[in-house]
């Protein structure tokens, strides 16, 4: 009887687990399209008109309110670059990369990567804030 109850409990728990993790990967693309509508319109305009820059838009009366174009080309804090590049290269946040150094003691290597990972997480999350443009 106990085994039957345990089996039922595990089955229910497993079902719950399936449902929870499955929901993490839900993506409302329709809502996303609405949120990005203005940017998509701008994207299409920029792609159609080669060589147009943000300054060109501003000079021609484009309403810059609500936009913070990424002028990171002129900024240089190392802290921001790391986070920017991780996001730019699509590396997942919190993704810890192995050091190709087999001579390094395993514990030292792991501790190093935890420290690295923490900085990656922090910088990747905060990089969009630091990269607000100047227009």
């Amino acid at each position: 009887m106990k085994k039957v109850l345990l089996f039922i409990f595990m089955s229910l728990f497993t079902v719950t687990l399936f449902a929870g993790n499955d929901e993490l990967f839900n993506l409302d693309e329709a809502a996303l399209e609405v949120q990005f509508q203005e940017l998509t319109t701008l994207e299409n305009f920029v792609l159609t008109n080669n060589n147009v820059t943000a300054i060109d838009l501003s000079d021609n009366g484009f309403d810059m309110a609500g936009f913070a174009f990424n002028t990171n080309m002129n900024s240089g804090m190392e802290f921001m670059w790391e986070g920017f590049l991780w996001g730019f290269l699509c590396c997942p946040v919190g993704f810890f990369v192995i050091a190709i150094d087999d001579d390094e003691p395993k514990d030292n290597k792991m501790s190093f990567w935890i420290g690295v990972g923490a900085s990656v997480v922090l910088s990747a999350i905060t990089s969009p804030i630091y990269y607000s443009g100047y227009y």
Binding site: E38, L39, L42, E43, V46, L47, N50, N51, V52, T53, A54, I55, G66, F67, A68, F69, N70, T71, M73, L89, P128, I129, Y131, S132, G133, Y135
Partner: peptide
């Protein structure tokens, strides 16, 4: 996070042997 919008466009060239990624940005500058 602050709701501000940003757009960047350009081209990229990745060389696995040289281990470099060349980004040629067009917008915003």
């Amino acid at each position: 996070f602050d709701g501000k919008q940003n757009l960047m466009t350009g081209s990229l060239y990745y060389n696995k042997v040289e281990r470099t990624i060349y980004y040629d940005f067009e917008f915003p500058e």
